[in-house]
């Protein structure tokens, strides 16, 4: 057997009634799912001014700090902005609900009780359901009807390591690795159809299922959409205040020594080194 290649003859009916249908069903389900997800998507919630302000307040100090080492603005302006921000962070001016009152420790809001966070979570769950259910149905269908089918022979040789990947559901130790079982064909499609969907539906489609294997239903759809869970901005602001103080020490105005640089560039002053 080792000298002669195993001649396994596949019935063309398998090709017509198993291989093509599985592929076609998977493609169509992917497309259908894309449109279901589009239908299920709720419009992004309109945020109040205070909420936007709270979310973006941190960016202010990040912008300020980003250029601190070669700051475009003179020290006076820098320190005034920096100290203003630090004071505002300490006082909690930017918090959505105004400065915290009294000395009550501010617990992070519970995501289950906060309706805004709940909405985001539900949206994630809904799309997740649309992702998982059809895959389970298809897998069940293939397992039930086509268990142990050999569907296709790959046109290139492969090492033995691919056996578990390509011949899932067939427990034969001797069969050539090039033969692909029905369940493995399903998995190959499952992970490999993304490119086709991208051609059919555009780049930001939601048809690809392999992607949501890693996604958690609690993660906000779209990542930076803003409902990224409960954040205790008060704590973040307090931490940012320290960063601001640190950067203030680093501050160096780009105009500090500019006259010498310009004079050197035009040859009026000997180079520094």
């Amino acid at each position: 057997m080792s000298s002669l290649p195993v001649s396994l003859y596949l019935d063309p009916q398998i090709r017509d009634w198993v291989l093509f249908p599985i592929t076609l069903v998977m493609i169509l389900v992917g497309i259908l799912r894309h449109y279901v997800v589009v239908l299920l998507q709720s419009a992004p919630k309109v945020q109040t001014r205070a909420a936007i302000r709270e979310q973006r307040a941190l960016a202010r100090s990040q912008i300020l700090r980003a250029t601190a080492a070669h700051s475009p603005i003179p020290p006076v302006y820098y320190t005034s902005i920096s100290q203003h921000l630090a004071a505002a962070y300490t006082a909690g001016t930017y918090l959505k609900d105004g400065p915290p009152k009294g000395d009550a420790p501010s617990a992070p809001p519970n995501p289950i009780t906060d309706p805004a966070a709940m909405d985001g979570m539900m949206a994630g769950m809904k799309t997740q359901m649309v992702m998982m259910v059809p895959q389970m149905v298809i897998m069940g269908w293939i397992n039930f009807f086509f268990q142990g089918f050999v569907l296709i022979k790959l046109p290139f040789p492969l090492t033995l390591g691919f056996k578990s990947m390509l011949q899932r559901g067939i427990e034969t130790p001797d069969m050539d690795v090039r033969w692909v079982s029905s369940l493995s064909w399903y998995f190959l499609n499952f992970f490999g159809l993304n490119g086709l969907y991208r051609i059919l539906l555009g780049s930001d489609n939601s048809a690809d299922s392999s992607r949501d294997m890693t996604a958690s239903p609690f993660a906000a759809p779209g990542g930076a959409a803003g409902v990224a869970g409960p954040q205790d901005f008060n704590k973040l602001f307090k931490a940012e205040k320290d960063n601001l103080e640190f950067s203030e020490g680093l501050h160096n105005w780009v105009g500090q020594d500019v006259e010498n640089r310009v004079l050197r560039k035009y040859g009026k002053l000997a180079p520094a080194y």
Binding site: P75, Y77, Y266, K268
Partner: peptide, 21 residues
């Protein structure tokens, strides 16, 4: 100077260069 910026020491040189440019 409201911003406490100091006048460059070699202001004469800068002036000459500016004229030339």
């Amino acid at each position: 100077s409201q911003s406490n910026t100091s006048v460059p020491k070699n202001i004469k040189l800068v002036d000459e260069l500016a004229t030339e440019r």
